[in-house]
């Protein structure tokens, strides 16, 4: 039956050019590109708040009394004095510090675990897989409150701060690192390492000349993901921070009062840096492939 329909429809397409004038109506063009246009509209929608962030980074400060968050005039002051509120910059510094440290440890532990899972057979493999999957499936509020419950039970309620945040961040970044590196490692052809061994490379040489350089982009990607997860985290951090303030917590705090426009400077810088990293990575990848 489908064959009959197929011939039928092929026949009608064959006849169509003769029946219709060669110039196509704008309506036909629209119909052909409707999905792309809708897609671009969705994409544009995701950029609306970003435009606001960039715009507000050039906004005159909002007075203490005014509760309305709106644009009142152009200025470069926010960019020239990013640390007008020193507590914002110290929160920012702390976020970067925690982000770097947590990324370092999570990337290290996660990469080792990924190698274990892809390359080695050991008891508890599937349990380990579950243990790695679960933190990604749990809502942040549950991760955060669990950790807090344990810290409190351990009598550490008074010790909450930099190191408890660090512990929490390593915990939730770890799974993402494992998943990213594991995918890269599993996608690698085993024959490459065998070829290296066949070409007189010792196991250590094989690892450093072949395996590591090939997995490295995955590790780098995992580290960048880790940093952005850590840097941006609010929910888990807020529960386990004690009196320590990170950048997202600072924003949370000021959002209830008056918002210093410098946070938009930080937001703009973040997106510029990340875009630059992604685009440079893309163009390098393209140059290597071309």
């Amino acid at each position: 039956m489908s064959a009959v329909q197929a011939t039928g429809s092929t026949g009608s397409t064959g006849r169509r050019p003769a029946a219709k004038p060669p110039r196509r109506s704008p309506f036909a063009w629209l119909r052909e590109h409707v999905v792309l246009i809708l897609g671009i509209l969705v994409l544009a929608y995701t950029f609306v708040p970003i435009a606001v962030v960039v715009l507000m980074s050039f906004n005159e400060p909002i007075s203490e009394q005014s509760k309305i968050y709106e644009f009142n005039g152009f200025t470069l002051d926010n960019w020239l004095n990013p640390c007008e509120d020193p507590s914002m910059c110290s929160a920012l510094g702390r976020s970067i510090e925690i982000g770097l440290l947590a990324t370092l440890l999570a990337t290290l532990l996660g990469t080792l675990a990924a190698f274990a899972l892809v390359r080695h057979q050991f008891k508890g493999r599937s349990t380990s897989n579950l243990l790695i999957f679960m933190p990604m499936a749990a809502p942040e509020i549950v991760l955060g409150s669990s950790l807090l419950a344990m810290f409190v039970a351990a009598g550490l309620a008074g010790q909450l701060g930099f190191w408890t945040i660090f512990i929490a961040h390593v915990m939730f970044c770890l799974s993402f690192v494992v998943v990213t590196v594991r995918a890269r490692l599993a996608g690698m052809d085993d024959a490459l390492e065998q070829a290296a061994m066949d070409l007189y490379a010792t196991p250590a040489q094989t690892f450093w000349k072949i395996t590591f350089p090939l997995v490295f982009p995955g590790i780098l990607g995992a580290a960048m993901l880790s940093f952005s997860l850590s840097f941006d985290d609010f929910i888990v951090t807020n529960l386990n921070s004690g009196n320590t303030t990170t950048f997202p917590m600072y924003v949370w705090g000021v959002s209830r009062r008056s918002v210093p426009m410098q946070i938009n400077v930080v937001g703009t810088v973040m997106i510029v840096i990340s875009l630059a990293i992604v685009l440079i990575g893309q163009s390098r990848a393209r140059r290597q492939a071309a």
């Binding site: 024959a191 490459l192 065998q194 070829a195 066949d198 490379a201 010792t202 072949i210």
Partner: peptide, 19 residues
């Protein structure tokens, strides 16, 4: 070990080092 043998292989997938 493979790296101790005076034997070399042309692999089916070629296994050229992509990097």
């Amino acid at each position: 070990k493979p790296y101790q043998r005076p034997v070399n292989t042309v692999f089916q997938s070629y296994a050229l080092f992509p990097h």
